[in-house]
C-alpha cells in the first residue's frame, strides 16, 4: 500500500531519537524523560504522545489494539486505529489477549497483560505535582531530591477534610520506591494492575514532550497512609450485559426520569465474559 509517508509516519531519525529516550525511560522507572516531541497529524491532547511512542515501536508483525475509556469503538480510538492502518497497514484487533501492542486512554484492560505485550498510555499531564507547583523548574528539583512532602500534605489535607483521599482518577503512584508518577487519568480502580505487571508500560505525553516507563515486574504503589489505606472503587450493581461484578462500570442514563444502568467500560472484556457465560 502506498501512503506517501514513511512507515509509521515518523522519519527514521525521529524514531531513533524517541527509541533512545524510551530505553532511558525504562532504565529510570517513573522518571519523566524529556523528548523532542513532534507535531503529529492528530491534535495535541488527543493522544499525540501515545501515537509517537506507538509509531516508534510498531512493526509489520504487530497486532494493535486501541482503546479509549476502555472501549475499542469510541471515536478517538477508531481515529487512531485508522491512522495506523493508513501509515503502517498493520493488523488491528479488539481482543486484548491477541494484541501485541495496546494503546490506551484512561483505562487498563481488565484482562491481565502478559510479558509479550506492551501497553502505551496517552498522557495529558505527565507531572503529578503540577497542580501543586506550576513551575517545571521547581517540580524537576522536587523529583531530583525525592522531595515529596507537598504531595503527602495534599493527600493528608483531603483526608482531614473529607475523611478519605478524594482523588478518584489519576491517583498518584510511587514507582520502584523512587519517583512519584502520574498513572494518567485511569480510574484508581486500575492502579493495582500496574503493580508488578508482566507487560512493559510506556507513557507518552506529546504536548508536554515527556516519555516515561514502568518496566515489567516493577513495584507500583498507590500513595496512602497506614490509617487510611488505598481503596479502589466498588459498585453495588453488576454489568447489565454480562453480569460481571469485577469490572469497572460505566453508568448509562436510560430515560428522561434519570433511570440508570451499568455496563462494563472494557468492551472486549464484556463481550468475552458474555460468551464465556453462555
Amino acid at each position: 500500500m502506498k501512503t506517501g509517508f514513511n512507515f509509521a509516519y515518523l522519519d527514521e531519525a525521529t524514531k531513533r531519537m524517541i527509541r533512545r529516550k524510551i530505553l532511558k525511560a525504562i532504565c529510570i522507572p517513573g522518571y519523566q524523560c524529556p523528548f523532542g516531541g513532534r507535531e503529529m497529524p492528530l491534535a495535541y491532547g488527543w493522544g499525540t504522545g501515545g501515537i509517537q511512542v506507538t509509531a516508534s515501536i510498531i512493526g509489520k508483525q504487530d497486532i494493535l489494539k486501541v482503546i479509549d475509556q476502555g472501549a475499542d469503538d469510541t471515536t478517538n480510538a477508531v481515529s487512531i486505529k485508522n491512522f495506523f492502518k493508513r501509515v503502517c497497514n498493520i493488523m488491528i484487533t479488539d481482543r486484548t489477549a491477541e494484541a501485541s501492542l495496546i494503546q490506551t486512554r484512561h483505562r487498563i484492560p481488565e484482562t491481565t497483560l502478559n510479558k509479550d505485550q506492551i501497553i502505551v498510555y496517552q498522557v495529558p499531564q505527565p507531572e503529578p505535582l503540577r497542580k501543586l507547583e506550576p513551575k517545571e523548574k521547581e517540580t524537576r528539583k522536587l523529583h531530583a531530591y525525592k522531595e515529596y512532602a507537598l504531595m503527602h500534605v495534599k493527600l493528608y489535607e483531603e483526608i482531614s477534610q473529607f475523611g478519605s483521599v478524594i482523588k478518584t482518577w489519576a491517583y498518584p503512584v510511587e514507582t520502584n520506591n523512587r519517583y512519584i508518577t502520574d498513572p494518567t487519568p485511569i480510574p484508581k480502580f486500575d492502579n493495582p494492575k500496574m503493580n508488578n505487571m508482566e507487560a512493559l508500560q510506556l507513557f507518552g505525553a506529546g504536548r508536554e514532550k515527556r516519555i516515561y516507563a514502568i518496566p515489567p515486574y516493577t513495584k507500583v504503589k498507590s500513595l496512602d497512609f497506614d490509617d487510611h489505606p488505598f481503596e479502589i472503587q466498588t459498585w453495588d450493581e453488576c454489568c447489565s450485559i454480562c453480569g460481571s461484578t469485577k469490572s469497572y462500570l460505566d453508568e448509562i442514563i436510560i430515560n428522561n426520569e434519570g433511570k440508570k444502568n451499568f455496563i462494563c467500560s472494557d468492551t472486549d472484556f464484556c463481550k468475552s465474559n458474555l460468551e464465556k457465560n453462555k
Partner: peptide, 19 residues
C-alpha cells in the same frame, strides 16, 4: 531494509532492557 530491520532490532533491545 533500514526501516523494518532497525524496528525489529529495536524491539529486541526494548525487550532486553525490559528484562
Amino acid at each position: 531494509d533500514q526501516t523494518h530491520s532497525s524496528q525489529n532490532m529495536f524491539r529486541t533491545i526494548l525487550k532486553a532492557t525490559s528484562f
